[in-house]
Design a protein around this nucleic acid. Structure first.
Lengths: 267, 267
DNA sequence: ACAAAAGTGTTGCTCTTACACCCATGC
DNA sequence: GCATGGGTGTAAGAGCAACACTTTTGT
C-alpha cells in the first residue's frame, strides 16, 4: 500500500502531470473546443482568466462617440459591449490591446493607453475573469475604415446615449471617461481625435465635449496659441457659409519637448 | 478507425475532460505541489498567471520611504522586491491587495489604489505572469507595527536610495511614484502619510518630497489654509528648540464635499 | 542674546475672466 | 443686409511669486 502511494506521488506529483495537462490543452485547442468562460483557438494559446476590453472614443460632428460591438453568442447575445479579446502567451498586454483594435478597425497607429484592471469576482457570469481596460482615441478621418470593416457588429454610439452594456462594461466606460478627462488636461492627447487639419473652434468644442464645460472663445484661442503647440498651415476652410477659419495642425516636436518637461493644461 | 476517432471525440471533447483537469488540480492542491510559476496552497485556489504587487509608501523624518521584502526562495533569493501575492477565486482584486497588505503590516485601513496591470511576456522569468500593481500610503504613526511584524524580511528604504529590485519591480515603483505625484495634486491624499496631528510645515515638506520641488513657506500656508481643509485643533508642538508650531488636523467633511465637486491643488 | 523655526505683510506682476466689438462669407 | 461663426481688444480683478519682516521659544 505504501509502495503504491509513493508510486502515485512520483508520477502524479512530478512533471508528468504537467505534460498530461499540456496534452489535454493541446487536444482541446486542436478541436476548437470551447467551454464556458474558456476559449481556445487553433494554433494560439490564450491565458485563461484574463481579457482585454477597449473603450474606443471618436469625435464626430462635435460629439463624442464610443465604438461598441454586438455580441453574437452566449447569454449576452444581441447585447452591446466593449470590443475585447484575449491575451496570447507571447504578447505583452499592450500588444494584445493593439491587436484587438487592429482586428476591429483595421487601424494600426491608434492612440492607446491602459486604464486599469477590473476584477470583481462576479463581473463575468460564467467564470472568474479579470479584464484589463484600455481606452483608445480614433481620428474622425478614419471612421470610414472602421465602419466598413465590421459594419454589421460594430457601431458608434453617442456617449450621451449609450445602450445598456453587458457585464461591468458600463463601469469600465465610466473609468475611461474619467481617465480621458484627466489626461486631456495633462497632455494634448485630444489631437488624436481630430483630423490632421482643424480649426481652433473645433479644438475648443472637443475640449468642451470631453470636459463637459462651456468655454470662452477668445480666451481659449489666446491660451492655446500661447503654448506654441499649433502650427498655422496657411490654409483656410472651404465651402462654409460664414467667414472661413484658419486651419491649424499640431506640432509634434514641441509636444514631445513639453511632454518630457511635464506641463499642465488648465481650462 | 472512424469509430475510434469519434469515441475519442466524445470523451475528450466533452465535459469529462473538465472533470479530469479539476481532479488533477485538486490532487496538486492537496499535495501542496508547487511548480515553477504556479503556486497552490492547501484549501485556497489561486488564479494562475495573475499576481498583485504593492508599492507601500511611508513618510518618516521628512523623507519618502518604500516598504520592500526580501525574497526567500528561488532565483531571486536574497534580493529585494515589492510585497505581493496571489488573487483567490472568490476575492476582488482590491480585496486581494488589501489582504496582502494586512498580512504584511497588520494594518487594515490603509489607503490603497490600483495603478495598472503590468504584462510584458518576459517580466517574470519562469512563466507568463501578469501582475496588477497597487500603491498604498501608510501613516508614520503606524510604522512600529509594520516593523515589528516582519522585521526580518521587510524593511523601509528611502526612495532616493532603493536597492536593485527583482523582475520589473523598478518599473512598477516608478509608475507608482508618477501616479502619486499626479493624485496628490487632485486630492489631498497626502494626509494618509501624516500623523493625525501635524504642522503646516510638515505638510509642506511632504509635498516637497513627493513632487521633488522647493516651495515658499508663506505662500504655501496661505494657499492651504484658504482651502479650509485644515482644522486648528488648538494644540501646539512640545519640546521643540524653537517657537512651537500650531498643530492641525484634516477636516474629513470638507474633504468629502470638495472631492465630490472635484477640485485641484496647484503647487 | 542668539539660533531656529513660526508666522505676517507687501508689492509687482501674470494670468484669468467677462464681455464688447469688428471681420468675412454665403444666402 | 443679416445671420453665422471667425477673430481682436480691453479693463477689472484674482492669484501668485518673491522676499522683507516680526514673533516665539529653547539653550
Amino acid at each position: 500500500m505504501e509502495i503504491l502511494k509513493s508510486w502515485i506521488d512520483l508520477f502524479l506529483g512530478g512533471f508528468l502531470i504537467e505534460i498530461l495537462i499540456f496534452t489535454i490543452k493541446f487536444y482541446k485547442m486542436s478541436k476548437g473546443f470551447i467551454a464556458e468562460g474558456e476559449k481556445y483557438i487553433q494554433e494560439e494559446n490564450f491565458i485563461e482568466a484574463v481579457t482585454i476590453d477597449c473603450v474606443v472614443f471618436g469625435f464626430n460632428e462635435g460629439k463624442m462617440e464610443v465604438l461598441l460591438v454586438k455580441h453574437a453568442e452566449g447569454i449576452s447575445k444581441d447585447k452591446w459591449g466593449l470590443p475585447g479579446g484575449w491575451i496570447t502567451e507571447k504578447e505583452s498586454i499592450d500588444d494584445s490591446a493593439k491587436r484587438v483594435l487592429r482586428d476591429l478597425t483595421g487601424l494600426d497607429n491608434i492612440f492607446l493607453e491602459q486604464l486599469q484592471a477590473f476584477g470583481e469576482p462576479n463581473r463575468f457570469p460564467a467564470s472568474r475573469v479579470i479584464t484589463i481596460g484600455y481606452y483608445a482615441l480614433v481620428k474622425s478621418e478614419d471612421y470610414e475604415i472602421a465602419a466598413g470593416f465590421t459594419a454589421s457588429e460594430a457601431k458608434w454610439f453617442l456617449v450621451e446615449a449609450l445602450p445598456e452594456l453587458i457585464y461591468d462594461h458600463k463601469m469600465i466606460f465610466e473609468a475611461a471617461q474619467e481617465k480621458l478627462r484627466n489626461r486631456v488636461r495633462q497632455a494634448p492627447i485630444g489631437f488624436n481625435l481630430l483630423p490632421e487639419k482643424f480649426t481652433l473652434l473645433e479644438l475648443m468644442h472637443l475640449y468642451e465635449e470631453i470636459l463637459d464645460v462651456k468655454m470662452d472663445k477668445p480666451n481659449f484661442r489666446r491660451k492655446f496659441l500661447k503654448m506654441k503647440l499649433l502650427v498655422d498651415i496657411g490654409e483656410k476652410q472651404k465651402d462654409v457659409s460664414h467667414r472661413a477659419a484658419k486651419l491649424y495642425s499640431f506640432d509634434e516636436e514641441v509636444y514631445q519637448k513639453l511632454t518630457k518637461k511635464g506641463f499642465t493644461f488648465e481650462f
